[in-house]
Design a protein around this nucleic acid. Structure first.
Ligand SMILES: [Mn+2]
Ligand SMILES: [Mn+2]
Ligand SMILES: [Mn+2]
Ligand SMILES: [Mn+2]
Lengths: 219, 219
DNA sequence: AGATTTTGTTAGACGAATCTAACTTATTAC
DNA sequence: GTAATAAGTTAGATTCGTCTAACAAAATCT
């Protein structure tokens, strides 16, 4: 149906919209590392296929059809990441690039089997929700760790912007999803915070790090 | 390095050479369902890349480099098939089409991990040998069941021409790799044979079937 | 408001992989 | 050994996804 190339555009449109609200040609170009004229012409093509609403100089929007197809690719991506971590024992920092390729495999049963073997997981190894069979995805309303107050105890539920470097940094601090974290103090000057978790009593986390950590306040 | 398209040509060249000795443009065209002029121009391209020896109107040959690269793709294909059967519980009749896609995934660790999880298997689910890390592959010298004599007891070791239909036929007769088979009689007229195995005492197998079953004489 | 910068579009080209139509070489049949 | 058929090549076109250069519109700065 859609080419691998088209799939990557759809996915980027979906993800950017989710992160920053509005999508424009420039941002899409930056994200996909593809020059703007190429992006413009692909948008016209996707518009013809009724996957994108396109008007010159206006922000880009996926149609409902486009959202669904994008959601289904992201579903395959996230199921794959979960499979690689759970069943193939990869680290969470090593799965994205492989999933980026496997998400394009055309085989319904392949991903159904994955899902079954995984026990119908709701989230991927980075805490992002796995879209359902219709491509629909719902984010829980997590808070950023950087928005929490002194004294609170929270649970690490997801990470934003899952670069390998960032995930390795978290590994080096023994931080993983599900971790219970207590906020001991916040430095007003640079908004760095001191937290305790596991066996670590006073770990300093910069604001840059805290803004990428999504937490749930414990019930 | 090589495109997905080039990889499929290399694999076909390798497989046809293995099956029928000589490869020509016509056969490659038939196998890949690609018209002859397209094949000719790809051969010129692969010749430039030193993967194929090409001379107009002459049979086609992979270079050593070409054999190695083809072997490595087939390695990925067969490891994948084994993984799908062993770890993901697919039937041997359902894995080829998925493997046809996954063989093109670019990730050394992905296939290393597969191999490790599988315990370094020597053959794929159809009994074909898995090439080593250098793309080298060695076939054991199996016999065709159709070449065996009355009274012999053999072990089913591999199947030739692994179409889904043929494998489903074998499933329906409860035939699988490793099965011990005794040859009870051979009908001279059509070379069909009567065999016994497992709980089946007198199963008729046509010559067409027997020519596709590779067996080892039991030690 | 006008100048400058950023963003986006148009036009034209290119490589990869495919095709069809026409022609050539090799093989097979008689 | 010539005629017919099959196999292979050449030439030219097409689609996809990409690019650069040039131009146009929108946003930002002073
Ligand atoms: Mn990912
Ligand atoms: Mn991708
Ligand atoms: Mn196969
Ligand atoms: Mn393939």
């Amino acid at each position: 149906m859609n080419s691998l190339t088209e799939e990557n555009y759809l996915k980027a449109l979906f993800n950017i919209a989710n992160e920053t609200g509005e999508v424009n040609v420039n941002e899409l170009s930056r994200r996909l590392q593809i020059k703007m004229p190429t992006v413009t012409s692909m948008m016209k093509k996707l518009a013809q296929k009724k996957l994108v609403h396109y008007e010159s100089y206006k922000p880009l929007h996926l149609t409902e059809k486009g959202k669904k197809e994008a959601g289904l690719i992201i579903r395959k991506h996230r199921l794959t990441e979960m499979f690689l971590v759970d069943k193939m024992k990869f680290g969470w920092e090593d799965v994205h690039d492989i999933a980026e390729q496997i998400e394009h495999i055309q085989s319904v049963v392949f991903f159904e089997k994955m899902e079954e073997l995984l026990g119908y997981p709701k989230v991927d190894p980075h805490g992002s929700p796995i879209p359902d069979r219709n491509g629909k995805v719902v984010w829980k309303d997590y808070s950023k760790l950087s928005d929490c107050k002194v004294g609170e105890t929270v649970r690490l539920s997801a990470v934003i912007n899952t670069s390998s470097e960032f995930l390795k940094f978290l590994n080096s601090r023994e931080m993983r999803l599900g971790l219970k974290i207590r906020i001991r103090s916040i430095e007003p000057f640079d908004k760095s915070i001191i937290v305790s978790y596991g066996k670590r009593q006073a770990e300093v986390l910069s604001n840059v790090v805290c803004e990428r950590l999504l937490v749930e306040k414990d019930a």
